[in-house]
């Protein structure tokens, strides 16, 4: 059954992003909304943002860990395009005034070297199409009140993507085992959490393959230069003005962000 008023819901999210005022989750009014409904709203929202002159620079994949999937009650990840306007510079700052209720996560970011489109993409095809991997952080944010999200809500809301930063260093797969690459996240010099690549679906390259297959069903390909944010390696950490976050990856190096008001 088609969702009631996907364009209206997309417009509500568009306004919430612009005004930075969160709205009630769509699933409050209609608990039956599911994944398909969420993607229908997401498509309309992306169209609105692209019409403003934004551009798709890649995709984020979320719900890649078993604990997150259990929390939302699903058994597969979700995805959303990432937009050029949300890119931050490593070593620079992120302003809380541009976000609503942000949290930070460290992720392995795959950089596509070749076009890749499903179906039938396995880990081998994904590895061949990836130019390399980089250290990254994602700032997740929700346009819904108090992060009270169900699957349809977060999918509609660009999978709760807020902003991202990626290291300029792209390390070829011959020099790093994406499963085993270790990560530390520090906040003001204190260890906040640690993780390894396998936290994302068992291997970040499997995330790329999953994404290529799901996009393929929609007739979309991953293009050379696209970034794939392969999913958090630890529980998201809340941010406050004055914080300095540093995500350091073995073999990939660091990404640093200062949080300002």
């Amino acid at each position: 059954m088609p969702i009631t008023d996907a364009p209206g819901k997309a417009r509500a999210l568009y306004d919430a992003r612009r005004d930075r005022v969160p709205i009630a989750p769509f699933t409050d009014a209609d608990p039956t909304l599911g994944m398909g409904d969420g993607y229908a709203v997401q498509e309309q929202l992306v169209d609105l943002l692209l019409a403003d002159g934004d551009a798709i620079v890649g995709y984020k994949v979320g719900l890649t860990s078993k604990p997150m999937q259990r929390m939302i009650g699903v058994d597969s990840p979700d995805f959303a395009p990432i937009l050029a306007s949300t890119a931050l510079v490593s070593g620079g700052s992120v302003s809380l005034s541009t976000l609503i209720q942000p949290k930070i996560e460290a992720e392995v970011i795959a950089v596509m070297g070749e076009r890749l489109q499903g179906p039938g993409v396995g880990v081998t095809e994904a590895a061949r199409a990836v130019a390399g991997v980089s250290a990254g952080v994602e700032i997740v944010d929700s346009r819904f009140e108090d992060w009270r999200i169900k699957l349809a809500d977060t999918v509609a809301d660009l999978a709760s993507n807020g902003a991202f930063a990626v290291s300029s260093r792209v390390v070829p797969l011959s020099q790093v085992d994406t499963r085993l690459v270790g990560m530390t996240l520090t906040r003001n010099g204190e260890l906040a959490d640690t993780g390894a690549g396998a936290a994302a679906l068992g291997d970040p390259l499997l995330v790329v393959a999953w994404l290529a297959n799901v996009l393929g069903e929609r007739g979309i390909a991953l293009e050379p230069g696209h970034l794939v944010m392969t999913g958090a390696l630890h529980a998201a950490v809340p941010m406050a003005a004055g914080d300095v976050f540093r995500a350091e990856f073995d073999r990939l190096g660091p990404v640093t962000l200062r949080v300002v008001a």
């Binding site: 530390t184 993780g195 936290a199």
Partner: peptide, 9 residues
């Protein structure tokens, strides 16, 4: 099945 990850830190 992967049940937990970390780094040495």
């Amino acid at each position: 099945e992967v049940v937990a990850t970390a780094s040495g830190a």
